[in-house]
Design a protein around this nucleic acid. Structure first.
Lengths: 165, 165
DNA sequence: ATTTAACCCAGTACTTTAGTAGGTTATTTA
DNA sequence: TAAATAACCTACTAAAGTACTGGGTTAAAT
């Protein structure tokens, strides 16, 4: 089992997408700026998310990505799975051949843990995350920072943005 | 977060220790043979387990390792923690500085997941694992295999050992 | 025609894993 | 007391995966 920045980035990016889905497709450049993830790396992650039909793409100016389903139909477990970070805690992927073809001593323990993690992440939808207060606060701060960066608001407003943090 | 063979090996070895604690200290050579883990690698893992006072050692012939506490006072989470860094799923180790000094969008989600995993593994003691039927079956098979390997029982008994699997 | 942004590859520095190798020290047993 | 045993210690390594960077091509909007 493995949960590193790869899976965290994928979920973060998908949540960014869910948060900014009002005004048409969201470009990876925007996500990159707001979430501090390199553009090329995002492209690699979204290639996998697209293969798993979690997102759909629109090419050309004004294009980007949008969720391919309603945000209450996309779950964290699916996103983590899509970028090849299996939530499976066993070494044999549940095949019972952990120790040279036979079951290892702790096989069932890791199966139980895998179920536990999978159940937890399968119950959390993007919609749930979007409605969380802590998520909305961070999202608002990020939007303010982006406006400052693109010069759309002045320095005095930036102070307010910092107070939000 | 990371749960690979490293943590699985550690828990498996500790469970082997708990299962064979009747007849004095257990040598790493025995564990290596029964669990199919390289001896040198086991030595590295047990150096860490010893630092965390989960095991104590006896040197010289007939020596080996024993649990430093009763098997109902040692929990899976402690073993995994001892060899891995932790079962923490956040990138910032709970420090809230995931995104260049500030909280990232999904910080709280990974905190919740970390708590979930930690709670689960903290509730499972070696004593509980020892009493599990699936564990006892595998352990019995491994002991039979070991006897065959050391020539202490003959080939006809090996057939019975295979039937156990 | 130009710009935008997805799409696609190839490479790479870095870290971790899971091990190997080769010793030293402490303790028991013959 | 010598030999055997098993912990203890240090260093090295192949392979794999992570988290990028860079340099393109293709599709669609202005």
């Amino acid at each position: 089992m493995r949960l590193t920045t790869k899976g965290r980035y994928a979920v973060t990016a998908m949540l960014d997408l869910a948060l900014h889905s009002d005004n048409g497709p969201v470009s990876l450049a925007d996500i990159s700026q707001r979430q501090g993830i390199s553009l090329s790396y995002l492209e690699q992650l979204f290639a996998k998310l697209r293969k798993q039909t979690l997102v759909s793409s629109v090419r050309g100016p004004g294009g980007g990505y949008r969720l391919s389903r309603a945000n209450d139909q996309i779950f964290v477990a699916q996103i983590v799975d899509a970028v090849n970070e299996s939530v499976d805690a066993t070494g044999c992927k549940g095949k019972n051949d952990c120790q040279s073809g036979t079951t290892c001593l702790t096989h069932h323990l890791w199966c139980d843990l895998s179920d536990q993690i999978h159940d937890f992440l399968s119950q959390i939808s993007l919609a749930q995350l979007v409605s969380r207060k802590d998520v909305r606060l961070v999202a608002q701060r990020q939007e303010n920072e982006q406006l400052v960066h693109t010069g759309e608001i002045d320095q005095s407003s930036k102070i307010n943005a910092e107070l939000l943090n």
